[in-house]
Structure formats: C-alpha cells, structure tokens
Design a protein around this nucleic acid. Structure first.
Lengths: 204, 204
DNA sequence: AGCAGTTTTTATTCTCGATGAGAAACCGAG
DNA sequence: CTCGGTTTCTCATCGAGAATAAAAACTGCT
C-alpha cells in the first residue's frame, strides 16, 4: 500500500514508454533513438514522456537497466528450473538456450541492453557496469563448475572462452531472421558448438 | 598516369577523412557518427569534408565499402599464404586468426564495417549486400571444405554454425581490451572453440 | 464543484548537416 | 619570381529536426 507497486493506469503508461524505448533502442541504437519514435510506439505525445522521465538519457538508462536485469533473471530462472544436480555442462546448455530465447524472441529490453551497452556514452555505461558484471557472473560461475567437473578443456582460459561464447550468442541478434531459420535450429547449433568447443579432449 | 591513384596531398587528406569516419563509426554507430567528430579526428574543419564527399551518407558508405573489402582481402591473403593442401580445418583456424587480428588491431575500417552494417538504413545496406556476401562466401567455402573432409559434425547445419562462429569473432571487438588479455590469447581460445566445436565426434 | 494527477498544446532552444562566398595554398607558364 | 588559374579549404550562417520547458486542458475521484 505504502509503495506504488500497484498496477495503476499511470504505472501502465510508464511501462509502455519504457517498453517502447527498448523497442526503438533495439532497432536504431543509442544515438538513433528519437523521443518522437518512442512516443509513437508508446501511443503518447512526445512531451508526455517528460512527465515520467526528466530527460532522454534517463529514459534510455532505465530501459537498459530493465533489460540487463531481465537478461540475468531469465537465465537464472531457467537454471533454477533445471535439476540442480545435473552436470554443469548440461546446465550451461540450458543457459545458452535461455539466453538465445530471451534475446531473440522474448525481450526487446534484454536484446536492446545487450546490443546497445557498447555504444552508450561512457558516463552511462559506467552506471551499468555492476549490472553487467552481475549478469556475466552467472555465466562465470557456470563455467567454473564445468571446470571443476573436469569437462573444460584445460588449455582454455575460462574467462576468455566465456566471452567468446557470449559473443557468439549476442551476435545472433544481428543476423537471425525468424522468417528464415527456426529458433530451435540456432539454439541447437549454439549448444553443440559450446558443448564440444569447451569440452576437454576425450581420454586417449 | 591517366588515373589519379597518385599519393598526392589531396589523396592523403581524403584518406584521413575516410579513416576518421571509420574510427567514429566503430565507436558510435551509424546514427551517432557526427561530421564534427569525424572532422576533429581527421584534423580538418567540418565543411572541408564536403569538398570530398557530397553528403554524410556518401562518406559513411565509402568507409563501409573500404572496410568490407579490407576484411575480405586480409582473410583471403592469409589463406593464400598458407599451404593450399593443408586440412581445411587448419585453414579455417588461419582465417579465424586473420579475422581477429584485422578486427582487433589492424583495421578500424574492417571492424567498423563488420559491426555497423546491420545498423545501416536499408538503402545503404542494400548497396553493400554483394560485398558482404563476397566476404561471407570465403568462409562458406572453407566450411564446405571442412565438411567434405569429414571434419564437420554432421549434426550441425553449416550455415547456422558459420554465423554463430562469425558472431563469436565479431563480438570480440566489444569486450577485448588490449590492456588486459593478449591478442594471442583470444586467438588461441577462438581457434580451440571453433576446432572442437565444429569437429565431428570421435570415432566411437 | 474542485483538486491531484496526467496528458496535450504551444513555444523555445539546441544540435547538426549542409551551403555558399570567398581566402589561402599550390602550381605551371612566362 | 610573379602572375593567373586551379585546387583545397575556412568562416559564417542557414534551416530542419529534435529535445526540452511552460502553460493549458483534460480526467476521474471525492
């Protein structure tokens, strides 16, 4: 009651604006995101945005924050739903699938955040460092487990390998076209590449 | 003689402008590339750009064209320098190294082109379709060879796998920091992941 | 009716690509 | 070396489009 977590009309409008911002951000990038476009998508007059946010940057900032958080929580939830005692390499495959699903079909926010962060002005990127780190840390932990279980090629540096893998996933947003390949196809390819790519060589 | 391929001062200035455009493009994206910034990097007054190019888009267009061409030719050259009869999987590893070197240290142009193309306005992207295809085709051919030689996991769709791999490479530009990891480290990790990721399962 | 919260209308200001009128640098011929 | 022409670039400024501010109008709730 004290908190305005209630789903009032105002809250819904505000959410529509943030959603619209993510939508535009995803397609146009940071510099290309115009308030007029956001307003149109959100079904609002442009200046109305200023009732909720005091500047364009503040809006974008929030959209990115929501996106990073969502990316992390969706992956985390997928992992929570899996048997906790499954081999780490299997849990990693689950994370791969969750990440791709989120990025490619579930959340404009997550996709926008992941793809836009690198273009943000330094000050703003700084503000999201922590969230970004939190997100990557989920993965780091997974990779560490994989290593403990002896399923990681010892010649691979875990940190570098992880970034290469995440890159493969993130870039899918640039080329994947729902009209062409199926989402499942991409997930399958990514999972295979990650599994076999990270895998320790077979016993000789 | 007939052609002005000579390295006149004018040609050098022009090149500086294109270089600067690539530099800014790489960091700010298409919409964020302002002529004022390009001019500053190129050590020129902004309107001077109009002596060489008739519009912002024309400048960006050229920067991208140069970049795509360079990306392709650097990989092609690296392949040409390798023994033609080496196993395709080894040649692929060579291409991976060349691509990463180009992207990360050799050429702002190539990096800008590769990473910016998806953001370009449709009309402009259209103009570069062919160049992009030429570039990807080099890789496609490599993967096809790998498959013919039986080193590709038959469960992998070659096209999808290729895009996933290229994504891993392209995204390195977002996170690799020369001050931290060594370039060789990234190359090594990427090569291992690609080799083992694509590899057909060992004989049972 | 009257008021708080919300949204639109109208104005203002800023940013940035573009242009046009020449200034400066360069170059070849006498 | 100097004069005229050409190439290269600068300065001042315009104008469109965008962000933001201010004010007015609307909406439902009591």
């Amino acid at each position: 009651m004290t908190e305005a977590a209630r789903d009032t009309k105002s809250a819904r409008t505000r959410r529509r604006v943030v959603d619209a911002a993510a939508h535009v951000l995803l397609r146009r990038g940071y510099a290309g995101t115009r308030l007029a476009d956001v307003a149109e998508v959100a079904q609002v007059q442009a200046p109305a945005i200023y009732y909720y946010f005091s500047s364009r940057d503040e809006l974008i900032d929030e959209a990115v924050a929501v996106g990073l958080d969502r990316a992390r929580s969706l992956v985390t939830e997928a992992l929570a739903a899996a048997p906790a005692d499954a081999p780490a390499i299997d849990r990693l495959a689950i994370a791969v699938a969750a990440h791709l699903r989120t990025l490619l079909t579930h959340s404009d926010h997550a996709a926008a955040a992941v793809r836009t962060v690198p273009q943000l002005p330094e000050a703003m990127r700084e503000r999201h460092r922590q969230a970004q780190r939190d997100y990557v840390d989920v993965w780091r932990a997974l990779v560490a487990q994989v290593r403990e279980e002896g399923d990681l090629d010892p010649a691979l540096d875990p940190g570098t390998a992880l970034m290469v893998v995440l890159g493969a996933l993130n870039w899918t947003a640039e080329w994947w076209d729902p009209a062409r390949g199926s989402l499942e196809g991409v997930i399958d390819a990514a999972q295979r590449l990650v599994r076999d790519g990270l895998a320790a060589a077979e016993e000789p």
